[in-house]
Design a protein around this nucleic acid. Structure first.
Lengths: 246, 246
DNA sequence: CGTTCTCTTGACCAGCATCAAAATTTGTGG
DNA sequence: CCACAAATTTTGATGCTGGTCAAGAGAACG
C-alpha cells in the first residue's frame, strides 16, 4: 500500500526510493508469490528485497534493459507496453499490487513498465532470487501458477483483439478490471480507471477517440455512469455484460 | 480429454490410437519438457504416458472439457482456438512437435485443440503427472520456461493484433513459422503452411479474403513465391521483413 | 484564473469486411 | 488415369467500422 511505502526509509541513490522491506507487515503479501514463502523463511526474502517507489509516469524497466532484477508490485498500478519499430504502442496489460514482474527468464526485458500512478514494488536481484527459488520449491510452483494466469489473460486479450468490436472490447475490459486490483477493491459496482483513454486505447488496439465514443455509447445504453474521469459506476451489469458479448 | 469427456468408443483403452510409449526413442524428446527428465528416470515417464494419434480435423480437447490430462506433442501440427459466445473464432496459436499442452492448472480447458494434419501426442493423466512433477524439480523448471515462452508468444500476438496492418501481420506470421516446428525444418528459405487461409485469418484477426489478398501483395512485392498452397518460398527475406514492419 | 493536458464530439476517409463469383486445388468413383 | 464434384482460394465490387483530422469542452495544476 502507498502508506507502507511511505513509511519505509529512503535509501542509497543507486535506486531512488529504495529501502529495506518488512515482508511480515507487507499488505500485498497475501496476493503475491511471496505468500508461498513460510513466515519462518521471510528473513531470506527480506535480505534480498528492496522497496522501490515510483512516481506517476516513471519507468521501472524499459524494453531492452538487461533482466538483472525481478519485481513484485506492492502498491499502485503499472503499465506493461511494447512498441513497434516505428513507434506504435501496444499496452500488453496492467499490473497491480500482488503482481510479479519478470516471469520470463529472458536476458533482456521485452516490455517497458511504467507507473500509472504513485506505485511501489519490491525489487529482487534475479540471481539471488533464483538461488532462493532453488531452495524454496513452493516459490517456483507459485511462479508457474502466476505464469499460467498471465498466459490465460494474454490469450483472452488475443480473442478480444482478434474478434471483438470496439464496444465489446471496452465492455469486456471494464468487467475485467475490478478483479485485477485485490488490494484496492472499489466500492461495489464501481470501477477505478487509473489509466488514461490513450492507455486504454493502446490496450484495446483502438484510438483514444474510439474509446471515448465507446464510453459514450455505454453511457447512453444505460450500462455505466461516469463518476469522474477515473471512476465509473456500473448502472446495469446486465447491459454491460451484453455489450461485452456475454 | 476429448475421449474421456464425450466419446465412448470401442478402443481397448477408450482412446483410439493409444499405445505405450518408448520415451528413449522419441524423436520429439530433445525439444520437449521431457528432455528435463534424465534417462535414468524415463521409466517413470513411460509408465504414465500413452501415445494418442489424431487424424486431420480431430479434436484432442474442447473448450470446457475437464482438465484431466496433459499432453506433449510428438508429431504433426495442432490448432489452439477459442470461440466467442456467438461463434466467432480466434486461433490463439499452433502447436508442433515438442510443445506442451496443459500449462494452465485450470480445472477445465479454455481452448479447443484440433489436429491440422495427422498428429501424435503423448497423454499423461494430470494427477500422475503432477506427482512426477513433485519429485522431479527440473520438470517444473522446464514447464516454467515453456510457460514463459508461451507468454512471450501471446504478447507478441497482442502487439500484432493491436497495432499492425493486415500485411504486417501476415509477414510477421510467415517469419515466425519456421522456428516453431523444430522436428520438421523445411528446406532453407521455404515455409510450410499446414493450416488453411481461414485458420491463418482466425489467427491474425482477419478474414480469409484479406489473408489471400495479403499473400498476393507479398507475391507481387517479390517477397515470396507460392510453391503450393501449403508451402511458400521466401524469395526476398529483406522484402518480407520490411513488410512485417521490421 | 489562465495555461496545459485530457477528453469529447463532429466530419470525413481508409482499411478491412462483406457479398458475390470465378479460378484452382483436392477428393472420389469409374 | 480421367472426369466430375466438393472444397478452398483468389479476385472483384461495395459498404461499414474504426481511423484521421480538427475543433471545442472539461479537468488539473501552478
Amino acid at each position: 500500500m502507498v502508506e507502507l511505502a511511505r513509511s519505509t526509509r529512503t535509501a542509497p541513490d543507486d535506486c531512488p526510493g529504495a529501502g529495506s522491506s518488512r515482508c511480515a507487515a507487507c499488505a500485498a503479501r497475501p496476493f503475491s508469490v511471496c505468500a508461498a514463502v513460510p513466515d519462518a523463511d521471510l528473513a531470506r526474502l527480506e535480505a534480498i528485497a528492496e522497496t522501490v517507489r515510483l512516481d506517476r509516469g516513471q519507468a521501472l524497466v524499459r524494453e531492452g534493459d538487461p533482466g538483472t532484477c525481478v519485481y513484485n508490485v506492492t502498491a499502485g498500478a503499472l503499465r506493461l507496453s511494447r512498441l513497434t519499430p516505428d513507434g506504435r504502442r501496444a499496452v500488453l496489460g496492467f499490473a497491480f499490487a500482488g503482481d510479479f514482474l519478470g516471469l520470463d527468464r529472458a536476458p533482456a526485458w521485452y516490455v517497458t513498465i511504467e507507473a500509472l500512478e504513485p506505485a511501489a514494488v519490491c525489487r529482487f536481484p534475479r540471481a539471488r532470487f533464483e538461488t532462493l527459488l532453488a531452495e524454496r520449491r513452493e516459490l517456483e510452483t507459485a511462479l508457474l501458477a502466476r505464469a499460467s494466469d498471465a498466459l490465460a489473460a494474454a490469450q483472452a486479450q488475443v480473442l478480444a483483439l482478434a474478434r471483438k468490436s470496439a464496444l465489446e472490447r471496452l465492455a469486456s475490459f471494464l468487467l475485467s478490471l475490478p478483479a485485477s486490483d485485490p488490494m484496492r477493491p472499489p466500492p461495489a459496482g464501481h470501477i477505478r480507471l487509473p489509466m488514461t483513454r490513450q492507455e486504454i486505447a493502446d490496450h484495446l488496439g483502438l484510438t483514444l477517440e474510439t474509446v471515448s465514443r465507446s464510453f459514450t455509447r455505454l453511457k447512453r445504453a444505460g450500462a455505466i455512469r461516469q463518476v469522474s474521469l477515473t471512476e465509473v459506476e456500473v448502472v446495469s451489469g446486465g447491459a454491460l455484460a451484453r455489450a461485452a458479448g456475454s
